[in-house]
Amino acid sequence: MKKYLIIFILPALIACGNKQKEKSNDGYEDLHPIATNFFQPISSLDLETPDADKVNLGKHLFFDTRLSGEGNISCNSCHNLNTYGVDNERFSPGDAPGTVGGRNSPTVFHAALHKMQFWDGRAADVEEQAGGPILNPLEHNIKDEQQLVDRLKEVDLYLELFSKAYDDEDPITFDNLTNAIGAFERTLIPESRFDKYLEGDQSALNTNEKRGLKAFIDSGCITCHSGPALGGQMLQKFGLFHDYWKHTESEAVDLGLYDISERESEKYFFKVPGLRNIVHTAPYFHDGSVQDLDDSVRIMGKLQRNVDLSDEEVNDIVAFLGSLSSDIPEDVKQSPFEM
């Protein structure tokens, strides 16, 4: 009887195995080792776990409108955690009525993975970046560091939270404030399906997405958009082959890094943005001049690689970019002042 069972069961097992093999054999098996040469999953990074008390303080500060002159905006106003760390506005409204920021607000998700901050790279890390908008009259509109420190010292909650997070004689300082906000932002690094793919699960991407990944690599996008954040590691001229504003139809020409350095060779240089969650963070580029991701991909091919990407290539690359999406837990998105 056992002999007959084996005879009947064995072909079924073989057929099942062949079916599974066919399911995983989509012709892109050799793509994975190539991809791991250019990208790294978040799990491979040696990320330090921020102090819990600093993270808690930083979250309170991130959501607190008292960090703006008239109390009209918070960090979350421009970097809304419910919409992937952006406000989806071309330029973000400031604290003072009628004011707006000068450049598009990038996502705060995964920003801690970047080598520099701001579109012109003037801040080294998320801690230094946190102080910039607060003191900018077009953004948070706080006149100086002392004004904010004095304001927070009048809040019992912050007397408690700062003392708990920092073992200093006078814990409420502007440096500690930006350090705490940075600690909170360093927790906003969710993993995507692409991370699972890089870790070895080739089924994490479908065939369309793998085709887009191959097109992304073959088109030379990895020249700037590589590493764990798929960007954020360098400054690059926007418009290597053509004037960018002629393709983006920008209302004004931004000189980028030149505004700081005044070096002719650094005109139109901007930080290369990371591409994680890019399908959710429109509008695109430093001036938010392009709303559609397909158009952005096509424009980048022309400006940076001097190639005319086909509709099929654009569609495939956009499909791949969708695999970079990831979100943070719902409780992290919720304001501590509403809990």
Rank of each mutant, 00 (worst) to 15 (best):
L5D: 15
V86S: 05
N179K: 12
E89N: 11
E338C: 00
I260Q: 13
G322P: 00
H32P: 12
D120N: 14
Y158C: 05
N88M: 04
N80K: 06
D254V: 02
Q129G: 11
S74V: 03
G239T: 07
L157Q: 13
A282N: 13
S203C: 00
V332H: 01
C221D: 02
I142G: 03
L198S: 05
L293T: 09
G256M: 02
L31V: 02
N18Q: 10
F91S: 06
S77F: 13
G200I: 01
L275T: 08
V86R: 00
S192D: 11
S203E: 15
V290K: 04
E127N: 12
E251L: 00
K115W: 09
L324S: 02
H280N: 13
R298N: 12
P97H: 06
N56F: 12
S250H: 04
F216I: 05
P106E: 06
L152C: 08
D308T: 04
E139N: 06
D259L: 10
G200T: 08
Q233E: 15
E139P: 09
S250K: 00
S219L: 03
Y268T: 01
P93D: 08
Q147M: 09
Q129E: 11
D218W: 04
I317H: 03
I42K: 08
E169V: 05
V126I: 15
D64F: 12
S326K: 00
L309Y: 14
G301M: 07
H242P: 06
N136S: 08
T173I: 07
V55Q: 10
F337M: 05
V55S: 10
E262P: 01
A12W: 12
G274W: 04
S92L: 03
R186T: 06
V55A: 04
N136W: 10
S226W: 05
Y84F: 15
N208M: 12
D243P: 13
P329I: 02
N25C: 04
N306H: 11
L255H: 10
G27V: 07
A35P: 13
I222P: 09
D125A: 04
L47F: 03
L13F: 15
N277T: 09
E251T: 07
N72C: 06
D295L: 06
M1K: 04
F270H: 08
W245T: 06
A282K: 07
N206R: 01
H225S: 05
E160G: 00
K54H: 09
D331K: 05
G322I: 04
C75L: 08
H140Q: 11
L235D: 00
Q129A: 12
H286F: 12
K210C: 10
R298E: 13
G85T: 01
A111M: 15
R151S: 14
K143F: 11
K3R: 12
K267R: 13
L61R: 05
K246R: 07
K54W: 09
D53W: 02
F241G: 05
M116R: 14
E128D: 15
R186Q: 15
A15Y: 07
K21N: 14
A124T: 15
D95M: 02
A180W: 14
D327Q: 05
S261T: 15
A282G: 10
K302Q: 14
P41K: 00
F184L: 01
N56H: 13
N141F: 06
L148C: 11
D294F: 09
R186N: 15
